[in-house]
Design a protein around this nucleic acid. Structure first.
Lengths: 109, 109
DNA sequence: ATGATAATTCTATATTTCTAGAAATATATT
DNA sequence: AATATATTTCTAGAAATATAGAATTATCAT
């Protein structure tokens, strides 16, 4: 993934509603969730939701599979993972961070 | 960090120029880099650079320490790390990803 | 065919963001 | 005091984003 593509993904993640949507999809796991499910669960107007979803699909964060009238959405786990890795490796580990954070500031693990 | 704060950080990361800036800062390590260094190294006009830096400072991705005329900038490694962790944990690990990727797609670790 | 359901596209408005030159501020040097 | 250096703030125009109602498309059921 190029720097621009990476920035593109991060930008799409960088919106509260979209982050909420992605979280919901992750929670739904591999079964995914229909657009309508998301809409009802999060209370987002259809047109707004559609807009956000299409942006996430565009950068590859979300995948959609149509089953007749219903459109199922899935998070692209590998993509999310590679973004997390990018942040860890490219932006963190080099001579800092993992070395420097002697007490574990990071939340869980 | 709240979901909104997380989204705020991700949004700031989600700009090619800012991502470049952050990378440069990380490369510079704990010595940090002066605004002028960044400006010269990346060829970004001062006002533009200042704008991007102030955004990153605002969400806590970057810290600045003034030393007379020179303003040194440092990446907040813990913040970057916690974003990476959020993506891994909150958005990835739950019943998917780490479980599902039988061959280790993630580069390091 | 008609009606219901699922979702998108169209449209418009409000708001934010990006960009960079010009002017201003703050600090150091002579 | 005058000048140079480092950086920010001001300004403004262009472009992108976000929001959501209304209209539209596609599919299914009767």
């Amino acid at each position: 993934m190029s720097l621009d593509e990476m920035a593109g993904c991060l930008a799409e993640l960088g919106h509260p509603t979209r982050l909420q949507i992605l979280r919901y999809l992750v929670k739904s796991g591999h079964a995914g969730a229909a657009v309508g499910d998301i809409q009802e669960a999060l209370g987002i107007p259809g047109s707004t939701l559609s807009h956000h979803l299409s942006r996430m699909v565009k950068v590859g964060l979300v995948e959609q599979v149509r089953e007749s009238r219903t459109l199922h959405c899935f998070p692209r786990f590998e993509v999310i993972e590679s973004i997390a890795n990018f942040l860890m490796e490219e932006c963190c580990v080099n001579e800092a961070c993992a070395i420097d954070t002697d007490d574990d500031t990071s939340t869980a693990r």
